[in-house]
Write a protein that binds this DNA or RNA. Structure first.
Lengths: 168, 168
DNA sequence: ATCACTTACTTCGTATACGAAGTATTATTC
DNA sequence: GAATAATACTTCGTATACGAAGTAAGTGAT
């Protein structure tokens, strides 16, 4: 999974730049480690990461349309369509056309899918959540505030960089 | 890009759970937004995200072996080998076998690759870095401390969950 | 030197992942 | 109510992404 910075031609002191790099690195780590975890848990059940995510999602939320599923796992319809293809092949889910709106496809867990879901004690993402939960209340509030500030700042910078230059 | 939690059968108060979800969400956002940005910038140059990352990496660091490149962009050798295949096809880079160690392949920017790199004003990841740099010194220190704590906690939890149970 | 081992990389098979284009169905507009 | 637009999904082409297996080239131990 690709990510990552080219090193900085820094305008900051070495110490600050090191902190910045460390924050980037840790954020990436938290994200990738969560995915790695999902994958590892999935592997033990002969599933892929996304497939496990889908199974747990359906277990918790009940049947979902393909679009709803796409939205929840933040992937495009075409991606999820493929995932469901393979899950149907493994008889983990079934596609059922909606009667109200015949464009819609509901994804339903099969018995096999349901028992598989039951065999996974916690959703992998819950490890991340548990870690966060172990923070002091104040730390949690602080980190949330700063992360949101970061996200907001990035939005601004993106806005800004969307207007100006263009090169050869 | 898949991610994401199934909803919590929460052991926490609603407020705390909402904070936890928000932190997860924001972390994922920061990561995925960075990737989206890379992709967007790359697209304008007829490159893919990873290809742009490679180009800027080589520009800043000079020639790298394929393994060094893999490590830097946190991807496996086989993945990077494919990326380099396509970049070679586009004449952005060349493979040059090392003379000291004939197993090693050095990846070198071509002229085309170099001028393309020059046409990208800032590495996309630098937007993330710029956002972080805009934090107060104290906030930066705090968020770093807490993120590291989180990362450490996750490591512990992973250790713990790697020893015990196993199900049908 | 020789054999086992490791390392650096490639190749292959499969699974995401996305966007563009296509199909079917529903909603809207006139 | 027929033409048009929008929606839900699928299909296709291409690019990651990974692990397993393969190849070639160093390293070690004896």
């Amino acid at each position: 999974m690709i990510s990552l910075s080219t090193p900085p031609r820094s305008a900051f002191s070495d110490g600050v730049q090191r902190d910045i790099d460390k924050i980037v690195e840790t954020t990436v780590y938290l994200y990738t480690e969560s995915r790695r975890l999902t994958k590892e848990v999935a592997r033990a059940r002969n599933l892929t990461g996304p497939q496990l995510t889908v199974v747990k999602m359906l277990q918790h939320l009940g049947d979902l349309s393909l679009s709803e599923l796409s939205e929840r796992i933040r992937a495009g319809n075409s991606t999820v369509s493929g995932i469901i293809d393979r899950m149907e092949r493994e008889e983990l889910v079934r596609r059922v056309r909606s009667k109200e709106d015949r464009r819609v496809v509901h994804i339903k867990l099969t018995e096999k899918g349901r028992s598989l879901a039951a065999s996974v004690p916690i959703a992998p993402m819950e490890i991340f959540q548990a870690a966060i939960a172990s923070l002091e209340a104040e730390e949690m509030a602080t980190v949330l505030r700063i992360l949101l500030k970061l996200a907001g700042r990035i939005d601004e910078l993106v806005q800004a960089s969307n207007t100006p230059q263009s090169e050869p």
